[in-house]
Design a binder for these strands. Structure first.
Lengths: 200, 200, 200, 200
DNA sequence: GACTAACCGAGACGGTACGTCTGGTCTTAAG
DNA sequence: CTTAAGACCAGACGTACCGTCTCGGTTAGTC
């Protein structure tokens, strides 16, 4: 029920010829983001995005064949990849990581991530994109753990990527079970302290 | 206007009076489970369940107000709660746990669980049910970890429920990222070994 | 799931043995009438009547097998059959008749009549009941026309029942085309004056 | 998710661009007419029409927002407006009119008219459409009566449109009370003869 | 006094239609 | 070839009502 379309006397975007229109892409991603923020996942429908972005549905389907593809595109635009910084010891470094991602995941933009994980459970394409992103982040996290190892902080035999996996798993579990208010430093200690050498 | 239903000689379930018919419930959950197995999540629609179960849609909505509610009910019917058994040391105990859940999660029935986690990200009711289930399983896992603690296996200061949380997180991450083929024993060692006392 | 039945200390009508309960009948017809008045025809559903009258649906269907049957029953309870009175000449007599029925048909109770005519177009039982009622009223109207004939007011060859049919047709047409505000006396003259002898 | 529609090799109507498809309209009205003929009013549901016409329900609701609108559209397609012809005297002219409409109203197409009158009693839109149609036909009938008046056939003071109203009322009453087998000529005489000058 | 028979409120049941929504496909018309 | 627009078929959504059924309890009349 398009209540009244009287107000939209907008000089709409036309085609710019035989090539993709960046203004259209921006408008679509903006619309998708807004809808997600305002109405949640169930508000993010191809129909609604097309309407809000004043775009044709065919255009949408051409560039983002599924709803999950849109989801990923929206997330990629806003994802703030954490730049790990060495705090001198592993626990503080990981605590800082947790602090950052928990804060981000609590913003509307960050909330999209949990929806992507959800979507990935039944959409192969999204799963693939998610896996790529996960491995990328895992590598960065591994690197940060590597710093501690280089410092001789880790117990013998501990592999950075294995530990990184555990660190990441703890974060994901908090996200998926609505426990992002967990104290980051305490969580870092609970997850990591077993793997570092005894302080004399 | 079903004026004449003469042609349908089906011995269908009728009402058994002003109270719930268990046969109907069973038929509906059967149908829901079958649909999940055959067509995946997107095949699990209220419409299809009603059709397959030869049940009225009103009946469905009365007892399972949402698709998520059905999902939970289906899972609850089939969930094989792991009975933790003490294998003498924590790593073997946890390895056994991983072996069991990974195996179960790979069955069609178990696959429902990842869908529930997905659904929980946008359905408050499902989230609540899931959280209840998680806490229940966490308690059982905690208890198993407690056995090791009682044996003096754990390092000082390690709390069983905190460790259990980490153990569970690792399992969930494997489920959600399609890595259920991970070697259970190796994973158990990777997650747990930091928390047990050095063997002399 | 009657979460809390505390508030309903209802001294409801129970069975009074193996015979029809007049209180129930009254409650049902009251409810039906109220619903008609409040929500119009589309508000008159068996379901709603049963709910409002605190009656079982089976009870309803037992005594009034269809919605049309209820409609008729409601009308029969309230129908004010016009008692024709001779005003000394035919036009005034008919004008008085028109005045009465137009006034009645404009009341909520009277509005039911047009619904009955409507229902009769597709419900044989209602059609039958309506026809019976029409013939009864036609006879009464015929009698009134007969009074004028006895007075020598009618032109030669005019049969009272034929004229009565025409008089009634004019009234129905006004009812069905929402023209009940027509001036009764003028209408009476327009319909009848051709059939009475010239006044010298 | 119509995964595979291989078995239905039906060359269905697709969109013909951003404008109404006449083939679709025709298919829908055909389907509606057929359903009316085959199953009566209660068979004419939006659901069934969409199914039979192989049309989407949204398409139906877009162009015919209600069941009554469909009813009117079906009637308008088939209505045979009587072309009044002067038979030399009023009674024969009206008898011919009655003969024509009674015959038409007895055909399946014509039966729709009584359903429209019924529907009009509770659907404002249908009522409006019906009133427009009535006035149009009344004007045509009035004109025919006017021919007689021009010939000096009518008694002094008789207004053609008032008489036409009475003539029409008699026809409607026959339609609504299932008396379309009335002898047209006799009815014409019974309704009209009072209004024409005595033949010397 | 026990028993039968019908009545009554309640409400679950299998269905069907409603009117709305979204998904994808397609065509047009403009650039 | 791209764009906005939007018509089209399909079908799921959740609600409401249909008419049938069983329940558990009532009361009147019969044995």
């Amino acid at each position: 029920m398009p209540e009244s379309i009287g107000e939209c006397a907008k000089p709409q975007r036309r085609s710019i010829g035989a090539r993709r229109n960046p203004a259209t892409e921006a408008a679509i991603l903006d619309a998708a983001g807004d809808l997600l923020r305002e109405k949640g996942v169930h508000g993010l429908t191809m129909e609604a995005v097309a309407r809000r972005a004043q775009a044709g549905k065919a255009t949408l389907y051409k560039w983002w064949p599924s709803c999950g593809a849109l989801l990923i595109a929206v997330y990629e635009r806003s994802k703030g990849a954490h730049q790990h910084s060495d705090r001198g010891n592993l626990i503080d470094t990981i605590a800082e990581f947790y602090r950052f991602v928990f804060a981000f995941w609590q913003t509307p933009e960050g909330q999209v991530f949990r929806l992507i994980i959800a979507e990935a459970q039944s959409d192969k394409d999204v799963a693939e994109a998610l896996e790529g992103y996960r491995l990328e982040r895992l590598a960065a996290l591994s690197e940060a753990v590597g710093w501690a190892q280089a410092r001789g902080e880790l117990r013998e035999g501990v592999e950075p990527d294995v530990l990184a996996d555990t660190i990441m798993a703890a974060a994901w579990l908090r996200l998926l079970t609505d426990r992002l208010t967990t104290d980051p430093h305490r969580l870092a200690r609970d997850v990591v302290s077993g793997w570092i050498v005894e302080k004399q």
